[in-house]
Simulated assay, not measured.
Amino acid sequence: MAKLPSTRDVQEALKHILWTRDGKTITASEAYQLLAEHFQLDPTLTRRVIRHGAGQENAWQNRCRTARRNLVALGAMERSPRNQWSLTESARKGMRRNLRELGL
């Protein structure tokens, strides 16, 4: 059975996707789609449901939100406004610095 990418892999891909947006925000729905395309996930995998307490939720969306929460906690993504995902200025500066160090 196919598996979702790890949370760490989703975090790295999400940072890359947001970096390519040059400071523009994306919605959660856009992030789910762009990340699924990045990992070339089969649509059936992105619709898989997991149980949470008395309810259930989409496993792929949960994985993406967890990656976002981790990046917010690390200071790499903005906490708000709601449903607007973007890198922090310090994360963008760090990525630019890394690219310069690599000669890119």
Rank of each mutant, 00 (worst) to 15 (best):
A2G: 00
R96L: 15
A28D: 10
G94F: 07
R63V: 02
K15L: 15
I17C: 05
H16K: 11
R47A: 15
A67L: 08
N70C: 07
K93N: 14
G55F: 02
E30T: 12
K15M: 14
R69K: 13
G55K: 09
R82N: 11
A31K: 07
V10Y: 01
P43R: 14
K15C: 13
Y32I: 06
R65C: 05
L102Y: 11
F39Y: 03
G75W: 12
P43V: 14
A28Y: 09
R82W: 12
R47H: 14
V72C: 07
N62E: 13
T66S: 10
R68I: 09
E30Q: 15
V10E: 01
G23P: 09
L41Y: 03
M95Q: 13
P5N: 02
L99D: 14
M95S: 06
R63N: 03
L74D: 15
K3G: 00
L4K: 04
A67Y: 03
L14S: 04
T20L: 13
R8W: 03
R47Y: 06
H16F: 12
Q33G: 10
E30G: 08
P43W: 09
Q61C: 05
L35H: 01
A31W: 06
M95R: 14
Q40V: 06
E101W: 09
I26N: 06
A2N: 06
V49H: 02
M1Y: 03
V10A: 06
G103P: 04
K3R: 13
T44E: 15
E37A: 09
L71Y: 01
P5T: 01
